[in-house]
Design a protein around this nucleic acid. Structure first.
Lengths: 344, 344
DNA sequence: TTGTAGGCGTTATCAT
DNA sequence: ATGATAACGCCTACAA
């Protein structure tokens, strides 16, 4: 590969000093119109591309922030990333994206790599480390903002608790008494909160907490389907399923479809996220919307404040809103026992 | 933000020269065990993090490649990205990801930014510029690999033509005679090839090319649904729809569901991509699989060869394979007019 | 085994 | 209006 041209090359060609080239390229008013024009033309012709590394070395800033997401193919994460990027651009930053694949070690590596690149700040979503960042907070020069880790001082989260409560309350109001929950493994606050919301509402309505009705998915469609199939194999299957997220819910829909059960006639389903996809399932998915773009944007502007030195940031919680569509309906009449579920 | 510690700081603390620190940190065998140990310990304690920028400046390589994708939330692109990253890691590279949002200007900016970062090479998928990269190929130091732009010398593509042909042939064999195509706008080779494959098969079977049966989506679920609704509003609607991609197909399924049509009894649907989601629609989607991970991995290893200076790379084409699932079935008996098409 | 010195491409602070 | 020069953090001959 041919060497990149540098300001020195241009300087030589233009018969001026490198510093003059640097100034001209930054349209420094002190440089004469003509020299500036000449230099810009030469830069163009010679295919000059500034080296950010060299520039960064002297300016001590990269105008770049790092974003660590669980997995690029996770629709939740990617929507957050879009929000982050939008806000980043408007604040004059570029964003470096790295996937952690929900693996603590890879997450550490990702953050380390971002440190080495001297990004001005870092945003992490779907962290496996969470409050672990507290420890390195002081010695690390770059501020970190966490998404969905409300106990971290610099964080921005969805109101998972309220969202889950609303979802389950909606099912209770429809007359459901055997409501299952397909959970996500791990002890993320989001997982915890949604599970808590589920239990809260059941106990509030004095419904029994049946352990059989809480199963674990893995946040994917495949995992959701498997979990749902386990639920449907129960002696007394649920009449409604609250899912950790929309992907899980779509898997559940698939399981129901395969089992020959009608939605919502035989079984109601409710998700969490309100992915774009959610509106296009058959029937359209009832779910809890969290504005992922907002999550990302707020994270970015919090980070910006941190970078600028405004130290007075507090954890933020964004609302989550129930969106009722077609997958939730009245609880089926519990005929004598059960099992004549699929008429027709 | 506190200053980062440098090798000089460590050198001072360890009472040695900076170069010794540098060598110790790289576990240079020439440095004594004890000094190395001391220095590593100090580096640890002082929270030393090497500056990649400074290192890059002298080594002239970043061990980083740039990946420009259409949009991070596009499942096709993100799966390609995962493949790229896997291969990148195994070759010792990090990857910098930037979205172009299918906008030529943003794509230019993305590539420019990658140039400025001096990434060792660049991969672009969903390019709006395509062969335009030929022009800058010589003057740019970094090699570029394009995905799905088979006319570019350094490219790797799916066999869109064969895939589309197989899909439509499958429908013809099922007895369909009014087969619609929901296309993607723009003149990408992938779009062109799939449209050509569609027409090829129709003409090969002497079926009329009805302009009404070719409508444009936009590659999203929403766009697919709208396009499908237009198709269904036709005086003589199709009995089968071949969709540009799976997202479009899912939108089509939604449209069909909403219109009260049964799949595949009343109308068959076939997608392209075989996203993970495809297997979980109701019914599961018949589609054409292209291995997106492979696409990414091959792109990365081609780029690696280019970086290493092996100049003898040729465009590669990866196979696309029809996956028959539940959304395709025999053409419905056309009451009145034509029929008896489906033997078997 | 370790120290010295030069340079990577840029910007910034002095001069001129 | 422009030129010299130092410095950013690191690596790497070359010396010692």
């Amino acid at each position: 590969m041919p060497e990149s041209t540098t300001i020195k090359d241009i300087a030589r060609a233009a018969q001026v000093a490198p510093s003059t080239v640097s100034r001209a390229l930054h349209t420094d008013p002190r440089i004469s119109e003509e020299t500036t024009a000449l230099i810009c033309r030469l830069a163009q012709e010679m295919g000059y591309t500034p080296s950010l590394a060299a520039r960064h070395l002297v300016t001590q800033q990269t105008n770049t922030i790092g974003l660590v997401i669980s997995c690029i193919s996770d629709p939740f994460a990617s929507d957050v990333a879009i929000g982050v990027e939008q806000a980043a651009i408007s604040h004059g930053y570029s964003v470096l994206l790295i996937s952690s694949y929900r693996d603590a070690k890879r997450e550490e590596q990702a953050v380390q790599s971002l440190y080495e690149r001297r990004t001005d700040g870092i945003i992490v979503t779907g962290s496996q480390i969470d409050e672990g960042y507290l420890a390195r907070q002081d010695r690390a020069p770059q501020p970190i903002v966490l998404i969905n880790c409300p106990r971290y001082p610099h964080s921005i989260s969805s109101d998972n608790l309220a969202g889950a409560r609303d979802a389950v309350a909606h099912l209770v109001q429809l007359g459901h008494r055997r409501i299952a929950y397909i959970a996500n493994p791990g002890s993320h606050q989001a997982n915890l909160d949604r599970a808590t919301g589920y239990k809260d509402i059941l106990t509030h309505h004095e419904l029994p907490l049946d352990d059989d009705l809480v199963v674990e998915g893995d946040g994917t469609v495949a995992g959701g389907k498997q979990a749902a199939l386990r639920l449907l194999a129960l002696a007394r299957p649920p009449t409604a399923v609250f899912c950790f997220n929309d992907l899980t819910a779509i898997g559940t829909l698939s399981a129901l479809c395969e089992t020959g059960l009608r939605v919502p006639t035989d079984c109601s389903v409710i998700g969490f996220d309100d992915l774009e996809l959610a509106a296009y399932s058959c029937p359209p998915l009832t779910t809890v919307r969290q504005d992922r773009g907002q999550l990302g944007q707020h994270a970015m502007s919090m980070l910006h404040r941190l970078i600028e030195g405004c130290g007075d940031v507090k954890p933020e919680i964004l609302p989550a809103k129930l969106v009722v569509r077609g997958t939730t309906g009245p609880a089926p009449m519990a005929a004598g026992s059960r099992k004549e579920v699929n008429q027709e």
